[in-house]
Design a protein around this nucleic acid. Structure first.
Lengths: 109, 109
DNA sequence: AACATCTATCGTAATATTACGATGGATTAA
DNA sequence: TTAATCCATCGTAATATTACGATAGATGTT
């Protein structure tokens, strides 16, 4: 027990859950917002912007990267992160579809 | 340690993270999809539809309810769940804003 | 009242997440 | 080369999540 039963769900459901989970943390939301806002991808600035330790920020960046939502490239001594456009738009579509499938006929409850 | 530092983030960031976390599980995605599909809110049918124990489904429903995304009403001996329209649309907007704020200028990384 | 049905909750075990200090590897500057 | 800077990773403690059996409460049926 204690582990999610991914085998009884579809690949689509598992992937969507995995990517949503990557976003579902205030620090990672703040990181994404900062990356989007600054466009010219930030790196260690995130440590100053948010009030978290460097190791913690690095860990959050790793999760966003593992989910495929951001990408990083070496920029001199520091590392530059930015949105991974394809995954970002795919996720946007998946979420849109999910929300759009709900028709507010409200004939229940 | 081990607890999310909500105090250093905005209410908006915390709320969005909280609601996204509620959705960020394949079982809860499947539950939401089923509720939307059936419209006429299901209840114990979810236990049959998904391959999870009744206690587990009930726990997932509770989390969706705590996040304000669904509502339940007593329907005879069983309980009928459906989408909470207001929260659902608010969340849809919040997510849309987040994704829409990204302009694919790709001048980095 | 007695019974059946449905669901919420309790208790619990296994695992995952969160945060941070400390350390090490890579790159640039002196 | 030496020192400085930046970041990833390791190790770890505290807490949260996930899943399920067992049980209890509520409603409907006989």
């Amino acid at each position: 027990m204690g582990v999610t039963k991914t085998d009884i769900f579809t690949n689509q459901q598992n992937k969507l859950a995995m990517q949503l989970k990557a976003i579902a943390h205030p620090a990672r939301i703040a990181i994404l917002q900062q990356i989007i806002k600054a466009n010219a991808c930030i790196c260690g600035d995130l440590v100053d912007e948010l009030g978290l330790a460097q190791a913690t920020i690095s860990q959050h960046l790793k999760e966003l990267k593992n989910a495929g939502l951001i990408q990083g490239s070496i920029e001199g001594v520091s590392i530059c992160y930015c949105i991974e456009p394809v995954a970002w738009k795919n996720l946007q579509n998946e979420i849109n579809n999910m929300f759009a499938s709900y028709k507010d006929v409200n004939t229940c409850c």
